[in-house]
């Protein structure tokens, strides 16, 4: 039982990361209308941005949820950097293209390679770590529930919840959010209603990439940092978006939670005697993705917006 609780706790942390990635991917898919293969590498860019910033701000005093305040400042820097690079990429690469969504998809692979090659060129390919001392599991939870959860895990889940909550508020309670939902729903109708859809698209890139960067930073914090982490997780993020239903932000959240949980519950298969190792966790996510595509192409939450 404690074992299952442990898997669920891990799943919650991993889901938080996947959700942050999948929201942006889903936004781009619905508003810019293409599968953005550079999204994973945008996550990596954010993670490296925060890594550099942490070298500057890491010494700041105070701490929150076991992480120094400087880390949160660095997180914001990483998010801002990824957003700026995504907007630049949109203006310099995607917007001038006269092509269909498949052409954009292929171009985004080129963009992903350029991002990753730049990071490899500057930082090398070695594993890096944020210079934060790892603390052990929280004693209270370990003693009472036999579950090992670190403060770092809690910080990731809480930060992700704050970010996702802010997005929910933005989408539901502000004019900008209504414009975004209108544009995602029907760009032509939005344009004739007087919404400046080109600006909405820029905002969408900013939000999607900033959230992706946060996901990348947490992924690097959760495990480690190297130039391939983003592309490595991209397919799992795609799985979350597709399972949730493309174009639906709330579907992406649900899909992210589901895929993240399944990913971290894979060891359970071994525990009950099914010989599928944890190395197959992403493979299981892909297979579920293909199954959802076949049975319910609009995703499990395809009708929500």
């Amino acid at each position: 039982m404690a074992q299952i609780l442990q898997y669920l706790a891990n799943g919650l942390v991993y889901s938080s990361i996947i959700i942050l990635g999948s929201i942006g991917l889903s936004l781009v898919y619905s508003i810019a209308d293409f599968a953005n293969f550079a999204h994973g590498d945008t996550m990596t860019v954010g993670a490296y941005g925060a890594f550099v910033a942490f070298g500057l701000f890491g010494g700041m005093g105070g701490s929150l949820l076991g992480l120094p305040l400087g880390f949160y400042v660095s997180l914001l820097v990483g998010m801002a950097l990824a957003a700026a690079i995504a907007v630049l990429t949109h203006l310099a690469v995607y917007e001038p293209l006269d092509t269909d969504s498949i052409g954009l998809l292929i171009t985004s692979i080129g963009v992903a390679f350029v991002y990753r090659a730049s990071l490899m060129g500057v930082f090398g390919t070695d594993f890096l770590q944020y210079d934060i001392t790892r603390s052990g599991p929280i004693p209270f939870l370990l003693e009472n529930f036999d579950v090992a959860i670190t403060q770092r895990d809690v910080a990731i889940v809480v930060s992700a919840a704050v970010l996702v909550g802010s997005l929910h508020f933005l989408l539901q309670r502000t004019t900008l959010g209504r414009k975004m939902r209108a544009t995602a729903d029907n760009p032509d109708l939005a344009r004739v209603s007087g919404i400046r859809t080109d600006r909405v698209i820029l905002v969408m890139w900013v939000i999607g990439s900033a959230l992706a960067a946060a996901g990348g930073v947490f992924l690097a914090l959760y495990s480690q940092l190297d130039p391939r982490i983003g592309f490595g997780i991209l397919l799992v993020v795609f799985a979350a978006v597709i399972v949730g239903g493309i174009g639906s932000v709330y579907g992406a959240m649900l899909g992210g939670l589901l895929i993240g949980m399944i990913h971290e519950l894979t060891p359970l298969l071994g525990d009950v005697g099914i010989p599928i190792g944890t190395a197959y966790a992403p493979a299981i996510a892909f297979v579920i993705m293909v199954a959802v595509l076949l049975v319910k192409p609009r995703g499990i939450a395809g009708d929500l917006t």
Partner: peptide, 25 residues
Amino acid sequence: LPIGPAPLRLMLVGLLIILIVRLRP
């Protein structure tokens, strides 16, 4: 070179993809 052969290769492939779709689809 300031950049190793593997990143350089990746960079060239990436730029080629972007340029082809842009200039000669």
